[in-house]
Design a binder for these strands. Structure first.
Lengths: 217, 217
DNA sequence: CATTCCTTACGTGAAACACGTAAATCCGTT
DNA sequence: AACGGATTTACGTGTTTCACGTAAGGAATG
Protein backbone atom coordinates (compact mmCIF):
# COMPACT_ATOMS: atom_id res chain seq x y z
CA UNK A 1 0.00 0.00 0.00
CA UNK A 2 1.39 3.36 -1.05
CA UNK A 3 0.24 6.54 0.69
CA UNK A 4 -0.19 9.44 -1.68
CA UNK A 5 -0.54 13.18 -1.18
CA UNK A 6 -1.78 15.35 -4.02
CA UNK A 7 -1.18 19.06 -4.30
CA UNK A 8 -2.44 21.55 -6.85
CA UNK A 9 -3.46 25.14 -6.33
CA UNK A 10 -6.16 24.71 -8.93
CA UNK A 11 -9.01 22.92 -7.22
CA UNK A 12 -10.59 21.40 -10.27
CA UNK A 13 -7.30 19.97 -11.48
CA UNK A 14 -6.62 18.73 -8.00
CA UNK A 15 -9.88 16.84 -7.96
CA UNK A 16 -9.13 15.53 -11.41
CA UNK A 17 -5.77 14.18 -10.35
CA UNK A 18 -7.24 12.54 -7.28
CA UNK A 19 -9.95 11.01 -9.42
CA UNK A 20 -7.28 9.43 -11.62
CA UNK A 21 -5.86 7.64 -8.62
CA UNK A 22 -9.18 6.19 -7.55
CA UNK A 23 -9.78 2.54 -8.13
CA UNK A 24 -6.18 1.47 -7.86
CA UNK A 25 -6.10 -1.07 -5.08
CA UNK A 26 -2.64 -0.48 -3.64
CA UNK A 27 -2.76 3.31 -3.70
CA UNK A 28 -4.27 5.30 -0.87
CA UNK A 29 -4.78 9.04 -1.24
CA UNK A 30 -4.26 10.31 2.27
CA UNK A 31 -3.88 14.06 1.67
CA UNK A 32 -5.55 16.35 -0.82
CA UNK A 33 -4.41 19.92 -0.61
CA UNK A 34 -4.60 23.20 -2.50
CA UNK A 35 -2.78 25.39 -0.02
CA UNK A 36 0.99 25.59 0.20
CA UNK A 37 1.16 26.39 3.88
CA UNK A 38 -1.23 23.64 4.87
CA UNK A 39 0.68 21.21 2.68
CA UNK A 40 3.96 21.71 4.50
CA UNK A 41 2.32 21.49 7.92
CA UNK A 42 0.33 18.37 7.18
CA UNK A 43 3.20 16.53 5.51
CA UNK A 44 5.39 17.20 8.50
CA UNK A 45 2.88 15.49 10.74
CA UNK A 46 2.14 12.40 8.69
CA UNK A 47 3.87 9.59 6.84
CA UNK A 48 3.32 9.95 3.11
CA UNK A 49 5.28 8.03 0.52
CA UNK A 50 4.71 10.05 -2.61
CA UNK A 51 3.61 13.64 -3.16
CA UNK A 52 2.15 14.49 -6.53
CA UNK A 53 2.68 18.16 -7.10
CA UNK A 54 1.33 20.04 -10.07
CA UNK A 55 3.14 23.24 -10.94
CA UNK A 56 2.55 25.77 -13.69
CA UNK A 57 5.88 27.53 -13.67
CA UNK A 58 9.29 27.35 -12.08
CA UNK A 59 8.89 30.44 -10.00
CA UNK A 60 11.02 30.83 -6.93
CA UNK A 61 7.84 30.22 -4.97
CA UNK A 62 7.48 26.76 -6.40
CA UNK A 63 11.13 25.84 -6.18
CA UNK A 64 11.25 27.03 -2.60
CA UNK A 65 8.27 24.88 -1.77
CA UNK A 66 10.06 21.84 -3.16
CA UNK A 67 13.22 22.68 -1.26
CA UNK A 68 11.28 23.25 1.94
CA UNK A 69 9.48 19.94 1.62
CA UNK A 70 12.70 18.11 0.82
CA UNK A 71 14.13 19.41 4.04
CA UNK A 72 11.09 19.08 6.30
CA UNK A 73 10.04 15.68 4.95
CA UNK A 74 13.20 13.88 3.84
CA UNK A 75 11.55 10.51 3.27
CA UNK A 76 8.91 11.97 1.00
CA UNK A 77 9.30 11.37 -2.74
CA UNK A 78 8.14 14.39 -4.72
CA UNK A 79 6.71 13.80 -8.16
CA UNK A 80 6.36 16.93 -10.24
CA UNK A 81 3.56 17.13 -12.77
CA UNK A 82 3.87 19.98 -15.20
CA UNK A 83 2.95 21.24 -18.61
CA UNK A 84 6.41 22.65 -19.08
CA UNK A 85 8.76 20.40 -21.00
CA UNK A 86 11.93 22.38 -20.73
CA UNK A 87 15.31 21.12 -19.72
CA UNK A 88 15.68 24.03 -17.38
CA UNK A 89 12.49 23.32 -15.48
CA UNK A 90 13.27 19.67 -15.05
CA UNK A 91 16.80 20.27 -13.87
CA UNK A 92 15.78 22.97 -11.43
CA UNK A 93 13.05 20.90 -9.83
CA UNK A 94 15.28 17.84 -9.60
CA UNK A 95 17.98 20.01 -8.12
CA UNK A 96 15.49 21.36 -5.60
CA UNK A 97 14.78 17.83 -4.46
CA UNK A 98 12.07 16.36 -6.66
CA UNK A 99 12.47 12.70 -7.52
CA UNK A 100 10.25 12.51 -10.55
CA UNK A 101 8.97 14.65 -13.40
CA UNK A 102 5.96 14.07 -15.63
CA UNK A 103 5.83 16.30 -18.71
CA UNK A 104 3.06 17.50 -20.96
CA UNK A 105 2.30 14.28 -22.78
CA UNK A 106 2.26 11.95 -19.80
CA UNK A 107 -0.97 10.08 -19.17
CA UNK A 108 -2.52 8.14 -16.32
CA UNK A 109 -0.39 5.08 -16.97
CA UNK A 110 2.76 7.15 -16.75
CA UNK A 111 1.51 8.65 -13.53
CA UNK A 112 0.98 5.23 -11.97
CA UNK A 113 4.29 3.97 -13.31
CA UNK A 114 6.02 7.00 -11.84
CA UNK A 115 4.44 6.44 -8.45
CA UNK A 116 5.59 2.83 -8.31
CA UNK A 117 9.04 3.72 -9.54
CA UNK A 118 9.43 6.41 -6.92
CA UNK A 119 8.13 4.14 -4.22
CA UNK A 120 10.73 1.56 -5.13
CA UNK A 121 13.42 4.15 -4.56
CA UNK A 122 14.27 5.14 -8.10
CA UNK A 123 13.88 8.41 -9.94
CA UNK A 124 11.39 8.83 -12.74
CA UNK A 125 11.44 11.09 -15.78
CA UNK A 126 8.77 10.85 -18.45
CA UNK A 127 9.78 9.71 -21.92
CA UNK A 128 9.54 13.11 -23.53
CA UNK A 129 11.74 14.53 -20.82
CA UNK A 130 14.32 11.82 -21.19
CA UNK A 131 14.39 12.41 -24.93
CA UNK A 132 14.67 16.11 -24.40
CA UNK A 133 17.60 15.78 -22.06
CA UNK A 134 19.31 13.30 -24.35
CA UNK A 135 18.86 15.47 -27.40
CA UNK A 136 20.07 18.55 -25.62
CA UNK A 137 23.01 16.62 -24.35
CA UNK A 138 23.92 15.31 -27.77
CA UNK A 139 23.36 18.55 -29.66
CA UNK A 140 25.04 20.36 -26.84
CA UNK A 141 28.11 18.28 -27.37
CA UNK A 142 28.03 18.82 -31.10
CA UNK A 143 27.54 22.55 -31.16
CA UNK A 144 29.17 23.13 -27.85
CA UNK A 145 26.59 25.79 -27.17
CA UNK A 146 22.83 26.12 -26.92
CA UNK A 147 20.81 28.03 -29.48
CA UNK A 148 19.43 30.69 -27.14
CA UNK A 149 21.15 34.09 -27.17
CA UNK A 150 21.10 33.97 -23.40
CA UNK A 151 18.03 32.88 -21.58
CA UNK A 152 16.50 32.78 -18.18
CA UNK A 153 18.24 29.45 -17.75
CA UNK A 154 21.56 31.16 -17.40
CA UNK A 155 20.34 33.08 -14.38
CA UNK A 156 20.69 31.72 -10.89
CA UNK A 157 17.73 31.37 -8.56
CA UNK A 158 18.84 34.35 -6.56
CA UNK A 159 19.19 36.46 -9.64
CA UNK A 160 15.72 35.54 -10.83
CA UNK A 161 14.40 36.33 -7.38
CA UNK A 162 15.89 39.81 -7.40
CA UNK A 163 14.75 40.42 -10.96
CA UNK A 164 11.25 39.34 -10.06
CA UNK A 165 11.00 41.61 -7.04
CA UNK A 166 12.45 44.53 -8.89
CA UNK A 167 10.02 43.88 -11.73
CA UNK A 168 7.23 44.12 -9.20
CA UNK A 169 8.26 47.69 -8.49
CA UNK A 170 10.18 47.10 -5.30
CA UNK A 171 13.06 49.53 -4.80
CA UNK A 172 16.56 48.23 -4.20
CA UNK A 173 16.17 49.25 -0.59
CA UNK A 174 12.98 47.24 -0.18
CA UNK A 175 14.49 44.20 -1.85
CA UNK A 176 17.52 44.42 0.42
CA UNK A 177 15.36 44.58 3.53
CA UNK A 178 13.17 41.68 2.50
CA UNK A 179 16.10 39.45 1.61
CA UNK A 180 18.26 40.58 4.51
CA UNK A 181 21.13 41.68 2.30
CA UNK A 182 22.81 44.99 1.55
CA UNK A 183 21.54 47.42 -1.03
CA UNK A 184 24.92 47.12 -2.67
CA UNK A 185 24.40 43.42 -3.06
CA UNK A 186 21.11 43.98 -4.78
CA UNK A 187 22.90 46.32 -7.14
CA UNK A 188 25.55 43.69 -7.67
CA UNK A 189 22.96 41.10 -8.58
CA UNK A 190 21.39 43.45 -11.06
CA UNK A 191 24.77 44.20 -12.56
CA UNK A 192 25.48 40.53 -12.94
CA UNK A 193 22.12 39.97 -14.58
CA UNK A 194 22.78 42.75 -17.06
CA UNK A 195 26.18 41.33 -17.87
CA UNK A 196 24.94 37.80 -18.31
CA UNK A 197 22.05 38.74 -20.54
CA UNK A 198 24.03 41.42 -22.30
CA UNK A 199 21.44 44.09 -21.62
CA UNK A 200 22.19 47.77 -21.93
CA UNK A 201 19.51 49.31 -19.76
CA UNK A 202 17.09 48.54 -16.99
CA UNK A 203 14.31 48.97 -19.48
CA UNK A 204 15.66 45.99 -21.39
CA UNK A 205 15.83 44.08 -18.15
CA UNK A 206 12.13 44.60 -17.54
CA UNK A 207 11.30 43.57 -21.07
CA UNK A 208 13.35 40.45 -20.57
CA UNK A 209 11.55 39.68 -17.34
CA UNK A 210 8.18 40.07 -19.02
CA UNK A 211 9.19 38.00 -22.03
CA UNK A 212 10.33 35.22 -19.76
CA UNK A 213 7.26 35.27 -17.55
CA UNK A 214 9.22 36.37 -14.53
CA UNK A 215 6.85 39.25 -14.04
CA UNK A 216 3.32 40.03 -15.19
CA UNK A 217 2.03 43.15 -16.88
CA UNK B 1 -28.31 14.12 -22.51
CA UNK B 2 -25.55 16.71 -22.93
CA UNK B 3 -22.65 16.05 -25.26
CA UNK B 4 -19.36 17.28 -23.91
CA UNK B 5 -15.95 17.90 -25.45
CA UNK B 6 -12.93 18.35 -23.23
CA UNK B 7 -9.75 20.07 -24.28
CA UNK B 8 -6.48 20.50 -22.44
CA UNK B 9 -2.98 20.46 -23.82
CA UNK B 10 -1.81 18.74 -20.68
CA UNK B 11 -2.76 15.09 -21.07
CA UNK B 12 -2.87 14.20 -17.39
CA UNK B 13 -5.10 17.15 -16.56
CA UNK B 14 -7.25 16.28 -19.54
CA UNK B 15 -7.75 12.78 -18.24
CA UNK B 16 -8.43 14.20 -14.81
CA UNK B 17 -11.13 16.50 -16.12
CA UNK B 18 -12.74 13.70 -18.08
CA UNK B 19 -12.62 11.52 -15.03
CA UNK B 20 -14.56 14.17 -13.09
CA UNK B 21 -17.36 13.95 -15.61
CA UNK B 22 -17.65 10.20 -15.39
CA UNK B 23 -20.62 8.73 -13.57
CA UNK B 24 -22.97 11.59 -14.31
CA UNK B 25 -25.87 10.02 -16.10
CA UNK B 26 -26.95 12.82 -18.40
CA UNK B 27 -23.47 13.84 -19.52
CA UNK B 28 -21.74 12.14 -22.40
CA UNK B 29 -18.10 12.90 -23.12
CA UNK B 30 -17.89 12.59 -26.87
CA UNK B 31 -14.56 14.22 -27.59
CA UNK B 32 -11.32 14.19 -25.63
CA UNK B 33 -8.58 16.19 -27.21
CA UNK B 34 -5.14 17.59 -26.46
CA UNK B 35 -4.39 19.07 -29.86
CA UNK B 36 -5.65 22.45 -30.99
CA UNK B 37 -5.77 21.64 -34.68
CA UNK B 38 -7.58 18.35 -34.16
CA UNK B 39 -10.02 20.08 -31.83
CA UNK B 40 -11.17 22.58 -34.42
CA UNK B 41 -11.51 19.93 -37.12
CA UNK B 42 -13.43 17.46 -34.99
CA UNK B 43 -15.78 20.05 -33.53
CA UNK B 44 -16.65 21.24 -37.01
CA UNK B 45 -17.75 17.75 -37.95
CA UNK B 46 -19.81 16.85 -34.90
CA UNK B 47 -22.58 18.18 -32.71
CA UNK B 48 -21.24 19.01 -29.27
CA UNK B 49 -23.13 21.07 -26.74
CA UNK B 50 -20.41 22.19 -24.37
CA UNK B 51 -16.65 22.42 -24.73
CA UNK B 52 -14.61 22.46 -21.55
CA UNK B 53 -11.37 24.21 -22.30
CA UNK B 54 -8.54 24.50 -19.86
CA UNK B 55 -6.13 27.34 -20.49
CA UNK B 56 -3.03 28.44 -18.61
CA UNK B 57 -2.68 31.96 -19.95
CA UNK B 58 -4.44 34.46 -22.17
CA UNK B 59 -1.95 34.31 -24.98
CA UNK B 60 -3.01 35.32 -28.45
CA UNK B 61 -2.85 31.62 -29.30
CA UNK B 62 -5.54 30.77 -26.80
CA UNK B 63 -7.74 33.73 -27.57
CA UNK B 64 -7.53 32.98 -31.26
CA UNK B 65 -8.55 29.40 -30.64
CA UNK B 66 -11.64 30.59 -28.80
CA UNK B 67 -12.47 33.05 -31.56
CA UNK B 68 -11.93 30.42 -34.23
CA UNK B 69 -14.19 27.94 -32.47
CA UNK B 70 -16.85 30.57 -31.91
CA UNK B 71 -16.93 31.17 -35.64
CA UNK B 72 -16.59 27.61 -36.88
CA UNK B 73 -18.98 26.11 -34.32
CA UNK B 74 -21.52 28.79 -33.48
CA UNK B 75 -23.81 26.51 -31.49
CA UNK B 76 -21.03 25.32 -29.24
CA UNK B 77 -20.90 26.73 -25.72
CA UNK B 78 -17.32 27.23 -24.58
CA UNK B 79 -16.56 26.89 -20.89
CA UNK B 80 -13.15 28.18 -19.88
CA UNK B 81 -11.38 26.56 -16.96
CA UNK B 82 -8.40 28.46 -15.68
CA UNK B 83 -6.18 29.14 -12.73
CA UNK B 84 -6.11 32.82 -13.55
CA UNK B 85 -8.61 34.93 -11.63
CA UNK B 86 -8.06 38.28 -13.24
CA UNK B 87 -10.67 40.60 -14.58
CA UNK B 88 -8.67 41.04 -17.75
CA UNK B 89 -8.53 37.34 -18.52
CA UNK B 90 -12.21 36.80 -17.95
CA UNK B 91 -13.23 39.74 -20.07
CA UNK B 92 -10.93 38.79 -22.91
CA UNK B 93 -12.15 35.21 -23.08
CA UNK B 94 -15.79 36.26 -22.88
CA UNK B 95 -15.17 38.83 -25.56
CA UNK B 96 -13.57 36.12 -27.68
CA UNK B 97 -16.74 34.10 -27.46
CA UNK B 98 -16.57 31.96 -24.33
CA UNK B 99 -19.86 31.55 -22.47
CA UNK B 100 -18.52 30.48 -19.10
CA UNK B 101 -15.51 30.90 -16.87
CA UNK B 102 -14.41 28.76 -13.93
CA UNK B 103 -11.70 30.32 -11.78
CA UNK B 104 -9.10 28.92 -9.44
CA UNK B 105 -11.34 27.91 -6.57
CA UNK B 106 -14.05 26.17 -8.56
CA UNK B 107 -14.64 22.52 -7.81
CA UNK B 108 -16.43 19.62 -9.46
CA UNK B 109 -19.85 20.86 -8.40
CA UNK B 110 -19.22 24.22 -9.99
CA UNK B 111 -18.10 22.47 -13.14
CA UNK B 112 -21.32 20.48 -13.36
CA UNK B 113 -23.40 23.52 -12.51
CA UNK B 114 -21.64 25.49 -15.22
CA UNK B 115 -22.29 22.79 -17.79
CA UNK B 116 -26.01 22.71 -17.05
CA UNK B 117 -26.21 26.49 -17.00
CA UNK B 118 -24.49 26.77 -20.36
CA UNK B 119 -26.65 24.05 -21.85
CA UNK B 120 -29.77 25.91 -20.81
CA UNK B 121 -28.56 28.90 -22.74
CA UNK B 122 -27.22 31.11 -19.98
CA UNK B 123 -23.73 32.32 -19.24
CA UNK B 124 -21.82 31.14 -16.20
CA UNK B 125 -19.14 32.86 -14.16
CA UNK B 126 -17.77 31.30 -11.00
CA UNK B 127 -18.47 33.02 -7.70
CA UNK B 128 -14.99 34.40 -7.23
CA UNK B 129 -15.10 35.89 -10.70
CA UNK B 130 -18.51 37.43 -10.17
CA UNK B 131 -17.30 38.99 -6.96
CA UNK B 132 -14.20 40.26 -8.66
CA UNK B 133 -16.16 41.93 -11.42
CA UNK B 134 -18.74 43.33 -9.03
CA UNK B 135 -16.14 44.80 -6.74
CA UNK B 136 -14.32 46.41 -9.60
CA UNK B 137 -17.55 47.78 -10.90
CA UNK B 138 -18.67 49.14 -7.55
CA UNK B 139 -15.34 50.72 -6.66
CA UNK B 140 -15.32 52.17 -10.16
CA UNK B 141 -18.71 53.77 -9.63
CA UNK B 142 -17.84 55.13 -6.21
CA UNK B 143 -14.80 56.98 -7.44
CA UNK B 144 -16.76 58.39 -10.32
CA UNK B 145 -14.20 56.99 -12.69
CA UNK B 146 -14.23 54.26 -15.27
CA UNK B 147 -12.30 51.06 -14.73
CA UNK B 148 -9.15 52.53 -16.20
CA UNK B 149 -6.87 54.15 -13.59
CA UNK B 150 -5.83 56.81 -16.09
CA UNK B 151 -5.21 56.14 -19.70
CA UNK B 152 -2.86 57.05 -22.46
CA UNK B 153 -5.42 59.61 -23.52
CA UNK B 154 -4.47 61.86 -20.66
CA UNK B 155 -0.90 62.15 -21.91
CA UNK B 156 0.18 64.83 -24.30
CA UNK B 157 1.88 64.01 -27.59
CA UNK B 158 5.20 65.18 -26.26
CA UNK B 159 4.84 63.04 -23.18
CA UNK B 160 4.05 59.96 -25.23
CA UNK B 161 7.02 60.75 -27.43
CA UNK B 162 9.37 60.84 -24.48
CA UNK B 163 7.85 57.74 -22.96
CA UNK B 164 8.23 55.90 -26.23
CA UNK B 165 11.87 56.78 -26.68
CA UNK B 166 12.68 55.98 -23.10
CA UNK B 167 10.85 52.68 -23.46
CA UNK B 168 13.10 51.92 -26.38
CA UNK B 169 16.06 52.09 -24.05
CA UNK B 170 17.25 55.55 -24.90
CA UNK B 171 18.87 57.37 -21.99
CA UNK B 172 17.63 60.78 -20.91
CA UNK B 173 20.75 62.26 -22.46
CA UNK B 174 20.06 60.60 -25.82
CA UNK B 175 16.44 61.70 -25.77
CA UNK B 176 17.47 65.26 -24.98
CA UNK B 177 19.93 65.34 -27.87
CA UNK B 178 17.48 63.92 -30.36
CA UNK B 179 14.69 66.29 -29.37
CA UNK B 180 17.00 69.30 -28.91
CA UNK B 181 15.91 69.93 -25.37
CA UNK B 182 17.63 69.85 -22.00
CA UNK B 183 18.07 66.68 -19.99
CA UNK B 184 16.19 68.40 -17.20
CA UNK B 185 13.25 68.84 -19.50
CA UNK B 186 13.23 65.17 -20.28
CA UNK B 187 13.20 64.54 -16.56
CA UNK B 188 10.35 66.99 -16.17
CA UNK B 189 8.32 65.20 -18.79
CA UNK B 190 8.86 61.91 -17.09
CA UNK B 191 7.90 63.43 -13.75
CA UNK B 192 4.71 64.77 -15.23
CA UNK B 193 3.91 61.38 -16.75
CA UNK B 194 4.37 59.67 -13.42
CA UNK B 195 2.16 62.20 -11.67
CA UNK B 196 -0.60 61.99 -14.25
CA UNK B 197 -0.70 58.22 -14.30
CA UNK B 198 -0.10 57.98 -10.60
CA UNK B 199 2.82 55.58 -11.03
CA UNK B 200 5.28 54.88 -8.26
CA UNK B 201 8.27 53.65 -10.22
CA UNK B 202 9.83 53.61 -13.63
CA UNK B 203 9.11 49.92 -13.79
CA UNK B 204 5.42 50.73 -13.65
CA UNK B 205 5.94 53.29 -16.37
CA UNK B 206 7.37 50.67 -18.70
CA UNK B 207 4.55 48.30 -17.92
CA UNK B 208 2.12 51.06 -18.72
CA UNK B 209 3.87 51.76 -22.00
CA UNK B 210 3.71 48.10 -22.94
CA UNK B 211 0.09 47.73 -21.92
CA UNK B 212 -0.84 50.72 -24.03
CA UNK B 213 1.13 49.62 -27.06
CA UNK B 214 3.49 52.56 -26.83
CA UNK B 215 6.42 50.20 -26.92
CA UNK B 216 6.92 46.61 -28.04
CA UNK B 217 8.50 43.78 -26.18
C1' DC C 1 -9.16 88.04 -19.57
C1' DA C 2 -8.80 84.25 -16.43
C1' DT C 3 -7.84 79.51 -16.33
C1' DT C 4 -5.84 75.43 -17.55
C1' DC C 5 -2.63 72.59 -19.84
C1' DC C 6 1.82 72.08 -22.33
C1' DT C 7 6.50 72.67 -22.82
C1' DT C 8 10.43 74.21 -21.31
C1' DA C 9 13.90 74.38 -17.42
C1' DC C 10 16.37 74.60 -12.83
C1' DG C 11 17.63 73.28 -7.66
C1' DT C 12 18.43 69.82 -4.33
C1' DG C 13 18.94 65.65 -2.03
C1' DA C 14 18.18 60.70 -2.53
C1' DA C 15 18.33 56.61 -5.24
C1' DA C 16 19.96 53.92 -8.93
C1' DC C 17 23.43 52.79 -12.46
C1' DA C 18 28.14 51.57 -14.48
C1' DC C 19 32.25 49.42 -13.80
C1' DG C 20 35.81 47.50 -11.13
C1' DT C 21 37.39 44.76 -7.27
C1' DA C 22 37.12 41.03 -4.04
C1' DA C 23 36.30 37.42 -0.51
C1' DA C 24 33.71 33.28 1.03
C1' DT C 25 31.16 29.49 -0.58
C1' DC C 26 29.18 26.03 -3.33
C1' DC C 27 29.59 22.61 -7.21
C1' DG C 28 31.32 19.77 -10.68
C1' DT C 29 35.39 17.64 -12.54
C1' DT C 30 39.53 15.73 -12.57
C1' DA D 1 41.70 15.94 -2.48
C1' DA D 2 42.57 19.81 -5.45
C1' DC D 3 41.30 22.89 -9.10
C1' DG D 4 38.42 26.01 -11.73
C1' DG D 5 34.17 28.18 -12.29
C1' DA D 6 29.93 30.16 -10.87
C1' DT D 7 27.32 32.24 -6.96
C1' DT D 8 26.47 35.35 -3.39
C1' DT D 9 27.90 38.67 -0.77
C1' DA D 10 29.81 43.55 -0.50
C1' DC D 11 32.35 48.04 -1.22
C1' DG D 12 34.38 52.35 -3.91
C1' DT D 13 33.70 56.06 -7.11
C1' DG D 14 31.78 58.74 -10.38
C1' DT D 15 27.65 59.45 -13.36
C1' DT D 16 22.82 59.31 -14.19
C1' DT D 17 18.20 59.20 -12.90
C1' DC D 18 14.46 60.03 -9.55
C1' DA D 19 11.44 62.79 -6.50
C1' DC D 20 9.57 66.89 -5.47
C1' DG D 21 9.16 71.65 -5.82
C1' DT D 22 9.25 75.88 -8.43
C1' DA D 23 8.54 78.62 -12.49
C1' DA D 24 7.98 81.13 -16.91
C1' DG D 25 6.26 81.62 -21.68
C1' DG D 26 2.77 80.00 -24.95
C1' DA D 27 -1.50 77.81 -26.74
C1' DA D 28 -6.23 76.76 -26.04
C1' DT D 29 -10.59 77.56 -24.10
C1' DG D 30 -14.44 79.39 -21.86
Amino acid sequence: MIDIAVFDEHKLMLEGLVSLLGGVSDLRTVLICDDRGVLVQKLKAMQVHVLIMNIRDISVRNLNLIIQLTISSPKLKILIVSMIDSEETVLKTIKAGAKGYLGADSDRNDLLEAIYTLRSGHDYLSKSITHLLLNRYISGMQTGESDQPAGIGSLSLRQVEILKMWGESYTNQEIAERLFISVRTVESHKNHIMQKLNLKSTVDMIKFAIKNNIIEI
